[in-house]
Structures are given as C-alpha cells and as structure tokens.
Amino acid sequence: MDERRNILRQLRRHHRLDACVACGKCSAACAMAAMYDDISLACSPRAFVQMALHAEEPRIPEEVRRCVQCGNCTATCPEGVDPSGLIRALLQLDGASEIRRCARCRRELPPPAALAWLENALPKAEPTGLEDAPPRSASAFLDLCPVCRRQAFAETICREAS
C-alpha cells in the first residue's frame, strides 16, 4: 500500500499536478467528453487530476480507459499540468493499458473502450439474407489503423473492379 502512495506522490510531482487550479479548460478540450456520463467531477481530465491530488491512493475510474491520448488537455492547460501523461500513467498502474494494435502495421489504435464506444455508435449493416457469412462486424472493421485501412481499401477496390 505504501508503494502505491509513493507512486501517487511521484505522479503528482512528475505531471506537475500541484499547479492545477481546477479551471476546467482540460475538460472542455477533452475529445472524449461525449463518452463521459458526467463531465463535472466524476470523470474528465480535471477530475482525474483533482482525484490524484486529493486521494489517499490511486483510484482509477472506468472512463479513464476511453482516453484516446490526443493530448489536448495537456496542450490546453494554462498552468502546465500534464493530465494526459497522468492518465497514461494511471492506465499503466491499473494494468488496463491493454493496447489494440493495427493488424498490419502494429501501430497503436485508440483504446479499446473508445473503440467499443465507436462500435456501438456506428450504423450496422443491413443483411440481405443472402450472405454466406454474417455481415462484417464493426469490431473486425476497426482492426486497422487509418493509414492501413486506406491502403487496404485501395487494394480491395482495385482488385475487385479490374
């Protein structure tokens, strides 16, 4: 337990959390705001920073997993706090830093929770009842990074139409 408290102390220092004035600009800039249940204090970059400042030991909320590491919070912060780095560290601490990688180039994809959110939000294919296989699932389709998908698409369409 002491070890985890120690880690928290290190996190505070390393990501300059003490400078936080809770202005909320990081929350406003957060890309994943739409996925949060409650943007106020339960979860948002500001909430994670405040939590790390005041908690006895690191507590990792579920919503942290949706962070896509865009770095907007860190870039926006007027006080030089690094919520993005803090969230990355929290995820590693949680052991939840499972990373989905592009099936072709092994580049890092957005976090699984964000992909799951995306999969849920995207429209489903309408089956014709004639398919040999079930229609492509959104998760299989989310396996490639944008660059590889572009390439894969170009290859598919040129092969098919020729």
Partner: peptide, 10 residues
C-alpha cells in the same frame, strides 16, 4: 480536437 475517431470510423 483531432482525436482521430472519425478516421477510425470511416
């Protein structure tokens, strides 16, 4: 905010 989810979805 340049999160890139649109790329991922397209």
């Amino acid at each position: 905010v340049n999160c890139g989810l649109c790329q991922q979805a397209c």
